[in-house]
Design a protein around this nucleic acid. Sequence first.
DNA 1: TTATTATATGAAAATACATTCATATATTTG
DNA 2: CAAATATATGAATGTATTTTCATATAATAA
Lengths: 102, 102
Amino acid sequence: MATVAYQINKEKLEKAAFILKTVAHPTRLAIVDLLSQNEKLSVNDICGVLGCEQSLLSHHLINMKLKGILRSEKDGLNVFYSLKEREVMKLIECIEHCDCNY
Amino acid sequence: MATVAYQINKEKLEKAAFILKTVAHPTRLAIVDLLSQNEKLSVNDICGVLGCEQSLLSHHLINMKLKGILRSEKDGLNVFYSLKEREVMKLIECIEHCDCNY
DNA sequence: TTATTATATGAAAATACATTCATATATTTG
DNA sequence: CAAATATATGAATGTATTTTCATATAATAA
């Protein structure tokens, strides 16, 4: 075996995997996509557009917020979510250029 | 609720999620990273570098190959894997610029 | 103050994914 | 051909993630 130079930061990869995992779900990707096109949206807005069950959507949103991808602000009855980490938008674009099997 | 323009291709997002999921794992990310720095490596090479159990590594590699991210070629006793879809390298870089919670 | 609406919460059930282990196959070497 | 080496396979197990459901909370409106 050739000696393989390997200087990858293991922590870095674990962090990357952690974030990727959060986004690697059709509904959550759709949320990112939606929020990249709309400054902020209420849970209900998103619910309506995605046709996702309210409680399930809440779980997703809270999870994404917890992981630092989204932020939220309350306004009366509504809670508006927005992209906190706009970098993740690029993931979708990046993947689009892939020519993997599906 | 404001009418939200939503013209996202659902299929596109499902495909993206599918690929992201494949890569969203520390070991598999490390494999991508390794193979972005080395044209091709045998299972054994990777095993040695990552300190990953052979059978588990095989599972990962075959899975990634199945999903079109890697390719493999046999040479005697060895099987060499290489990146088929080099675009995925960019995912790691992209994520690095994120400032999410971890 | 009761009803309504929007969102969150938590536990349970369902599903998917990762890991291990024992073993198979295929190739090379003595 | 037997032994050794590299890789693959598949079933069993363990673990994590997703979904559902019933219900709670909080804000507003009647």
